[in-house]
Amino acid sequence: MDLERLNYDENNRHHRFIRKLAISVVSLVVFFLIWWNLSLILNNPAVPTPGETWDAMRYLFEKGDLVSGMTMWSHMSISLQRFIAGLLLALAVAVPMGLLLGYSNTLNEFSSPTLEILRPIAPIAWAPIFLFTVGYVWGPILVVFVGIFFPMLTNTIFGVKKIEPNWMDAAKTLGANKKQVFTKVMLPASVPYVMNGLRIGMGVGWMCIVASELYASYGGGVGYFVSIQAQLGYWPNVFVGIILIAILGILTTGLSDYAYRKIVKRMGIE
């Protein structure tokens, strides 16, 4: 299309935003059209139309599903709680550990064989063991923990190794002791890297929570809801679950991207 005829100005922020918005809207419309046509052509109960899905969604948000009696709000909040618990746990373990391993070469060499063996294992592979050992409440949380832990750890170690030696020298000549060098230089200097680990971990972690709920869980959650509804053949409900998983995933990663950019800018480290 000839954008100049619409007075489009590449250097104008609002014009660029409107252009982006318009393209996104068109993209979504095309997506819904494809979906709608596919469901008509396939004529399969497992592929409901957008309309059926929309009706199911409204019902589920207002009244809840017939199996658990919980609304979609409750399912979403349960999944988010598990996700946040796993995230906090990963932060609490990976950040101090990453600082230590970044600081001490010996510790890093000592732990890296074990870590390198564990790293390539898909977090969900732990689900059977976790569910058996710590149960339905902590099992999914631990899967999220494993998913977020590794990117957090790697980024924190990397961050410590990238700290300017001059910053530590400057702190020492200003009278800082070992502990103060750690808390006032190493810790803040590694924050952008920790945040980057968090940003990557958020995406992985959200996949982990849904996967572990799908695998086996109890007492609600979006993944659990999808799994039960599929077993019962309530396909529009399954689609509602999938759409909400997508939306929550976009929101969590979008939020962490935003926080990352804000903090990096605030701290003046690019």
Binding site: A170, T173, L174, V191, R266, G268, I269
Partner: peptide, 27 residues
Amino acid sequence: PGPDRGMVFQDFALFPWRSVRKNVEFG
């Protein structure tokens, strides 16, 4: 090292996460 001997670096070695005031206050 000790605060009786201050040091000024060629590449400044300022703490970029601190404001001017907070950099000066460090010692």
